[in-house]
Write a protein that binds this DNA or RNA. Structure first.
Length: 103
DNA sequence: CCTGGGGCAGCCG
DNA sequence: ACGGCTGCCCCAG
């Protein structure tokens, strides 16, 4: 029985390269729409840093958000996947957003 | 831009 | 089990 964190990590693993998701979306996909904050916690507590791509998780509206290993690193990782970040936001966020389910 | 309030899992003590 | 604190947050003002 996976804990909340496990569920979150599992969901994050499903995000394909070149796409991004948000804390809010993850919370919704995990079944707790208001647990977006706990999602952020799960990411920082993520045991496998690059393995589980928490760098593909941004804040709502496409804002870059934070990163335990430094936001700089996060931006670089995203850039290497073809995702550009300008002015603290993901360019073309709406199009690059990975949707888990169509409710 | 900044502030305050809300809401939630995890980790102490 | 219980209360208090923390955090890669969100939203309204």
């Amino acid at each position: 029985m996976p804990s909340f964190n496990q569920k979150i990590w599992r969901l994050i693993d499903k995000i394909p390269a070149g796409k991004v998701s948000t804390y809010k979306e993850l919370a919704r996909a995990a079944g707790s729409p208001n647990a977006f904050r706990a999602v952020g916690n799960a990411c920082s507590a993520n045991p496998n840093a690059p393995k589980t791509p928490c760098h593909r998780v941004v804040s709502s509206g496409g804002k870059i958000g934070g990163y335990a290993h430094g936001v700089e690193r996060k931006i670089r990782l995203l850039a290497s996947e073809g995702i550009r970040v300008a002015d603290g936001k993901v360019t073309g966020f709406e199009e690059r957003l990975f949707r888990y389910r169509t409710l």
